Simulated assay, not measured.
Amino acid sequence: MRAFFAVLPPPDVLDHLAAHLEPRREADTDHTWRWTRVQHLHLTLAFLGDLPDHREDDLAASATEWAGRQRPVSMRWGRAGAFPDPGAAKVMWIGVTDEEVGRELAGWSRALRDLSSHAGADVDGQRFTAHITVARSPRRVKAGRWVQSLDAYESPEFLVDEVVLIESHLGEGPGRSPRYEVRHAFSLGSPQKM
């Protein structure tokens, strides 16, 4: 199973971000960027290229225990960037505004990667940056002006009180985009019984 742990924003925050992105999408008249569908906007904590189906329940049990030990956090999204850099970008993103929250999310990412690896998943080991991907390009392009226009964004504050495990079904969504299926939701700060 191809899957990932993520933070999903509440609908009002998604709407707020979508309103900020819409004029930028419209300004991309040469279609340099593939803009992320609003329903796909999320903050990935750990990407699992392959989780053996028979290990999903074990991972869910471990993640439930982990989540019970975490505290919910308040966050805002803002400040933009590009990977690998704005001069030759393939990905544009919006980050988390508070550095302390970013460090906490990095800790979550490490823990969830460890749990996933222990469950036998093929875990992505790239350096973690707390962000949501808003657009991708098939080739490296200069993105300085795009990043600058995105950098003015700041979301309303929202509470993150759960983390989800999402299965990604490649090519099964509209326009051959992925279809996401929430497999498990883990409430933070409240131990759950399986």
Rank of each mutant, 00 (worst) to 15 (best):
L170A: 07
W33I: 03
F128R: 02
P84A: 09
R127C: 04
W146I: 03
R71N: 14
G125W: 07
H184L: 00
V91K: 09
G102P: 14
V160M: 04
H20I: 13
D53Y: 12
T133D: 12
A88T: 12
L112W: 02
G125T: 07
V147R: 08
S190M: 08
R34E: 13
P86S: 09
V141D: 10
W66D: 10
E26I: 15
S109I: 11
R176Y: 08
E181L: 00
L159T: 03
A18T: 09
A130F: 01
R113D: 05
A82I: 02
H118L: 13
A6H: 00
A63E: 03
I166T: 02
H31T: 12
E56D: 11
D57L: 11
L8Q: 04
L59D: 06
A143F: 00
D28F: 05
R24C: 06
T64P: 06
L112I: 02
G107W: 07
G87N: 14
I132Q: 02
A60E: 07
S116D: 07
F128A: 04
P86K: 07
A63W: 01
S177R: 06
R76C: 10
Y180R: 07
G175E: 14
S62W: 10
K142M: 03
A80Y: 01
A3H: 00
G78F: 12
H16A: 02
S62R: 13
E172G: 00
M1N: 06
A19T: 11
A27H: 09
A121N: 01
R145F: 05
M194G: 11
T36Y: 07
L105G: 12
S149N: 03
A82P: 05
G102S: 15
R113Y: 00
A152T: 15
T97S: 13
R136D: 12
T36Q: 12
V123W: 10
L14P: 01
R140G: 07
V147S: 00
H131E: 12
F47V: 11
G49S: 10
F158Y: 11
L112R: 04
G171K: 11
M75Q: 13
G144P: 03
T97V: 15
R179H: 09
S177T: 12
R127E: 09
R34T: 15
P10T: 07
F4A: 00
D12G: 01
H42N: 12
L48N: 00
P84S: 09
D122T: 03
H118D: 14
Q192A: 14
V91I: 10
